[in-house]
């Protein structure tokens, strides 16, 4: 696989590092939460985001498994980066990721067999989750261990936030419950469509629409502030 591939498919841009600004540990951790949120901003890992979020419990378990694989692979990739030849690095990353996913899958099967069954093939499919390969290629493969783990933790939390958001909306509207606890009493007619596949597409569409609207407003406000400042300068 080529560099071109990972950029095109996994959006593995390392994130804009602003010149003249030192990158702090806090930034490594926090950028994944919102500014570079893997799902809401970078649009990576959409398959699990849509497929397993029909209940909050499924979302939590899926996010936990992905978090484990992401942090584990980032740690190992970062530790091994001196020993992995550049030509076979992506293959090596996938092997490392697949190993952690195998561990996660067996762990889930032993700990929460019910949910493991509900998630089906999607636990195994964490291997091809773009977020994980993307972080190895963009960050862990070229940064020190501490920063790579912080970056992975941040991205993992960002993914968890997105999954919880989707899972909450879909379970509350689609089943009238939250984590299985009934919210609205017996009079509530659940929107069954929300827990079915189309509901996933619609929920994510609304979430992304809201994100786009928020970003557009912020950009407009920043532009207006810039204009005001220019006017004030000219007046002075």
């Amino acid at each position: 696989m080529s560099d071109e591939l990972s950029h095109l498919h996994c959006g593995a841009g390392g994130g804009p590092v602003l010149p003249g600004r030192t990158v702090t540990a806090q930034m490594d951790l926090l950028k994944g939460l919102w500014r570079e949120n893997p799902v809401l901003i970078q649009l990576l890992g959409l398959c699990p985001t849509l497929a397993v979020t029909n209940s909050v419990a499924n979302s939590v378990v899926m996010a936990g498994a992905t978090f484990f694989v992401l942090v584990g692979s980032s740690l190992l990739v970062s530790l091994l980066k001196r020993f992995v030849p550049n030509e076979v690095r992506i293959t090596s990353y996938i092997l490392i990721i697949a190993t952690f996913v195998s561990v996660a899958e067996m762990g889930l099967q032993a700990l929460v067999p019910e949910i493991h069954k509900a998630l089906g093939a999607f636990v195994a499919l964490i291997v091809v989750n773009c977020i994980i390969l993307g972080r190895q290629e963009a960050f862990a493969g070229r940064n020190p261990v501490g920063r790579s783990v912080l970056d992975a933790v941040g991205m993992g939390i960002g993914f968890t936030i997105a999954l919880l958001l989707m899972g909450s909306v879909r379970e509350i509207l689609g089943s009238g419950t939250f984590l299985g606890v009934s919210l609205f009493g017996p009079g509530f007619e659940p929107w069954v469509i929300m827990v079915l596949p189309p509901g996933g597409f619609f929920t994510l569409a609304f979430v992304l629409l809201t994100v786009a609207w928020a970003r557009q407003r912020r950009a407009a406000r920043a532009a207006a502030a810039g204009r005001d400042a220019a006017v004030a300068r000219r007046a002075a």
């Binding site: 649009l43 469509i193 079915l196 596949p197 189309p198 509901g199 996933g200 597409f201 619609f202 994510l204 569409a205 609304f206 992304l208 629409l209 786009a212 609207w213 557009q216």
Partner: peptide, 22 residues
Amino acid sequence: PDVARGTALVLFVAGGLSLAFM
């Protein structure tokens, strides 16, 4: 509207298609 262009719009269409395939 500009704000709806891009992935959000594609997902709305996908939702519609998914509904049809049901």
